[in-house]
Amino acid sequence: MIHFIDVSKIYPNGSVGLDRVNLTVEKGEFVFLVGPSGSGKSTLLRLITREEKPTEGKVLVGSRNIARLRRKEIPYLRRRIGVVFQDFRLLPKLTVAENVAFALEVNELSRKEIRRRVAEVLDLVGLAGKERACPRELSGGEQQRVSIARAIVNNPLVLLADEPTGNLDPETSWEIVKLLETINIRGTTVIMATHNETIVNTLQRRVVAMAEGRTVRDEVRGSYQQ
């Protein structure tokens, strides 16, 4: 479903983000992306959302080469991709429900439909009853759940998580990963960039290791280190 074909990304200042990467992620997979900071994990994710354009090569999402996407088509690509970050990126002035609804409003759904789907997704991430809370009243783990709810409320094909547990304690991290697993079981492809060795080793999922912009290891049931 996602194909990287000889993809290189060289930034204007000359630094290499990706160096001839080939990678295929099939529908329904759960993939860990590991490697040191600056090894290209985030660049890879940003190419999928078309926040960056490859310098060379093709990035296929579905069957389309999104390197060739016109500016007008980018929003429609992003509606099929959910993104979760280390720092949650919630809007502090909006309630939990409003933060999640933010992703639905751009689709111009009716208010009733928005309310129904927000309630449904908050229930799924275990935040039923917290609709009216503000992000700052929530714990870190709860905030990340809100951001996951926002990422999946549009039923995306793929969920990209860029170090989603980076700011969380081990126990909460584990809960978040369990949630991502649940979402994966329901059919959404998940790509998670992480430094969390324990989680990777325990879950025994596909691991793609990166170093200096290249994929250096790709194992079906991998661990953090070789």
Binding site: T49, R71, K72, P75, Y76, L77, R78, R79, R80, V83, R89, L91, F102, A103, V106, N107, R150, N154
Partner: peptide, 16 residues
């Protein structure tokens, strides 16, 4: 700024 960034991320059109 943050709202704009998040709107872009969740697929808002430029017009929106």
């Amino acid at each position: 700024k943050e709202e704009i960034a998040i709107r872009k991320l969740v697929g808002a059109t430029d017009a929106f």
